[in-house]
Design a protein around this nucleic acid. Structure first.
Lengths: 196, 196
DNA sequence: TAGAAAATCTAACGTCGTTAGAAAACGAGG
DNA sequence: CCTCGTTTTCTAACGACGTTAGATTTTCTA
């Protein structure tokens, strides 16, 4: 009977090792290198074993995407501790873009088309909520009344996404994208201050 | 001898028909359906003939991406005829997002990872230039002096991209994304008006 | 009309995600 | 200890993909 628990533990361990291996491959070599056979080889198994832990490759990728959003969420939470309200916003923008630059392949997976729109949205929700909170305290502090909080938050979220995407372009590096993000968000916030 | 010209014409015709078929498949059924065999079948050939016209699939996709940017460019140019300067900016934002919504799969290809960053940038350049002009006349008209015109343009371009991407998310429809784009750009421009 | 040149097809290679079924490893009961 | 059912793992294969080589057919020229 205690054996069954050990089996379960081994199973869970293998499950985790698959995720870790997949993450390692994705981050270091990109989506093209992320094949089921490669992942299985990295955990010293053959390909079909992966299907005992995940329904298909997309389900596994979805886990990686979830992990990625966890990391991003942690970064944003860290930024949320910045005392100055305005700096906090700018640092959030910078942190988002920096994350995209430091985990390009993971970030790509998080926003790519392999996971469908609804799942992508769900995975991003917690991070968006943090942003929503940041934005709420910001607008409170400045006495700015946004017509629609959710809409405003969506604009900010989309803007960060847009600036991060610029970083993936040839001419725009990550550090420059960070500056662009700060400037873009800065301009938007100023715009909201001048008119609701 | 006149035959050779006819041959060349036929060759060119086949070339075009391949592009048209590929575009048709991509737009109507998405990237997953865009296979070399499928394209060949649609022009009533077998797969290898495609390689007589394009080095590989990516080169063909690159052509589709170029075509897409041509369409987008035309839309932006149409918008540029709007007399009112401020409305012009907002309509450009709206047009961009509308294009993304009306050609989701093509738009996706235009910004996806199958074509690399530099080529993507080069393909987008003409449209960005139109935007740059729009922005220049806007800042002139309002006496706003942007610290860096290119940077400002990049911010606008990235913002539009971000808003369009929101439209691909489950909860945000195309028409809502258009409004978000107008509001985002509006806020940014107001922000730039209040401080250089 | 014979033979060169071009266009097109058939067949295959290696890789992918995925599945079925054999083989092996393991746990429990006599 | 040994057997038997269960679970785990592997081997082999399927169909589809992008791509290439070589045979075959069509087309033009002389």
């Amino acid at each position: 009977m205690p054996n069954s628990t050990r089996r379960a533990r081994e199973r869970a361990s293998t499950h985790d090792r698959i995720i870790e291996a997949a993450l390692r491959v994705l981050e270091s070599e990109g989506a093209a290198a992320l094949t089921v056979r490669r992942i299985a080889a990295d955990v010293e198994y053959t390909a079909p074993v992966v299907y005992q832990h995940f329904a298909n490759k997309d389900a596994l990728v979805l886990r990686l995407v979830g992990h990625g959003h966890g990391l991003l969420l942690a970064e944003l939470r860290r930024v949320a501790e910045e005392p100055d309200i305005d700096r906090r916003m700018l640092r959030a923008a910078s942190a988002y873009v920096r994350f995209a630059g430091e985990h390009p392949h993971l970030y790509e997976a998080m926003n790519g088309t392999v996971v469908d729109a609804d799942e992508r949205r769900r995975a991003a929700e917690p991070a968006i909520d943090v942003l929503k909170e940041l934005l709420a305290t910001w607008s409170d502090a400045h006495g700015v009344e946004l017509a629609d909080h959710d809409e405003a938050c969506e604009i900010v979220w989309g803007t960060l996404y847009g600036m991060a995407s610029l970083g993936r372009l040839g001419t725009v590096g990550t550090e420059r994208a960070q500056r662009l993000a700060e400037q873009a968000l800065g301009a938007i916030l100023r715009g909201w201050q001048t008119e609701g």
